[in-house]
Design a protein around this nucleic acid. Sequence first.
DNA 1: AACCAGGACGTGA
DNA 2: TCACGTCATGGT
Length: 225
Amino acid sequence: MSLKTKKLFNIYEKLLKLYGLQGWWPLIDFKGTNPTKTGSVQGYHPGDYSFPRNELQQFEICIGAILTQNTAWPNVEKALLNLKTINALDPKKILFLEDKKLKQAITPAGYFNQKAKKLKLFSKFYISLKGKTPAREELLDVWGIGPETADSILLYAYKQPEFVVDAYTRKVFGPCFDEGFNSINSDATYDDIKLLFEINLPRDYKLYQEFHALIVEHAKNIGKK
DNA sequence: AACCAGGACGTGA
DNA sequence: TCACGTCATGGT
């Protein structure tokens, strides 16, 4: 086991001890519980990596990944609930939904003009997959799907071992990159950081899911003070 | 009352 | 390539 591997596992264990299992990705149709969460956000399922269990849950995760771009999750949840209320949490329904109604439903998540376009384009793409797992490059070719959204979709909706890098990852690991991981500094690119994790950790989607969720939880906590 | 959230795209240099 | 502006609502 390399030094970097040991360091990453060490950090993972510390975060796990601090915050416990996170149970990402949250699903609005699943009434899970997670004592580390507060507020209205439900549907986390700590320790259960069997989700998504059907195509609708899978699609919901994809839509959530798009809606949460630069947006706090509680706002996304409101948008998802609105879509569910009008029975539109489904690729075909979204594709044929009036623009005005779609934008109205997702208003709480912000950027509703851009995101309405993104949801329609992704729905079309999702239908074209016919149940197949998309390649990362295919996802990136879809307008509105960048590296983080693509990796979130692959990791949480398709259980693919793609490590997700976000602003929180940089916040938490920035100092570590400068000190202990001397091949990568804090201005490393998205792919640099992604590869650091993927090269030095076993390709395990459960580990990647939990690690990323823990990083987000930790980043939120250190941001408060 | 600013500030920022689980980013991505378009533009000009 | 890369730095910067844009997109928009809701919570603190």
